[in-house]
């Protein structure tokens, strides 16, 4: 699972109200939510995102509410992955469930600058910063998590598994 894109940097403890303010939670449409992505941080933040960009964040990214609209808004804005020091736990589950790749890299997250070009090899557990030349390692993404992302999230993944009759305890 490889991806190359431009880093868009945000800070520590970015909460879900910053990602998508509650007044926009009257829809689940990724396009509408994507247009408002990070409008709780800065109006029109999403306008500078190009499809395929990568979000680079600090500590405890996604803290706050359980709204699944947060990863949906990030995906809707065109961002394809989040590289962060650490993630809040509800957000972590929500991101994979909705098809958003997360990579937890600890202190190495601070070395990424806004505008850097990053090349992610998620299953290999490597991120190359093509701008600075630095290489960041992280725990390799397990195959079944990659499978969830490839299916576009947990709903698609469960659907595929059910179709194959591949339930718990059965081999694939």
């Amino acid at each position: 699972m490889n991806h190359k894109g431009t880093a868009r940097k945000v800070g520590d403890h970015i909460d879900t109200d910053a990602i998508i303010p509650a007044r926009f939670l009257v829809t689940s449409d990724p396009k509408i939510l994507g247009e408002q992505c990070f409008s709780g941080l800065e109006p029109n933040w999403a306008q500078r995102v190009k499809t395929g960009d990568i979000l680079a964040a600090g500590r405890n990214f996604g803290c706050g509410s359980s709204r699944e609209h947060a990863p949906i808004a990030i995906l809707g804005a065109g961002l394809r992955a989040v590289v962060a020091h650490s993630f809040a736990r509800i957000f972590y589950r929500n991101a994979f469930n909705t098809g958003l790749l997360l990579l937890e890299v600890g202190d190495a997250a601070h070395s990424i600058q806004d505008g850097d070009t990053l090349e992610i090899d998620a299953t290999g557990g490597r991120i190359r910063n093509l701008t600075s030349g630095a290489e960041i390692s992280c725990p390799p993404l397990p195959d079944h998590m990659a499978g969830i992302l490839a299916a576009g999230g947990l709903v698609g993944y469960v659907g595929q598994r059910l179709k194959k009759g591949n339930r718990v305890g059965e081999t694939s």
């Binding site: 359980s66 699944e68 509800i90 589950r93 469930n97 909705t98 947990l154 709903v155």
Partner: peptide
């Protein structure tokens, strides 16, 4: 519960935690 403050019920000794909508659907 699909609400982060589901943890409230720990006040009466329930293991209660928030999740997202898809986990809750499951």
């Amino acid at each position: 519960g699909a609400d982060s403050h589901t943890c409230t019920y720990g006040g009466i000794g329930a293991f209660a935690t928030g999740m997202g909508s898809t986990d809750i659907a499951g």
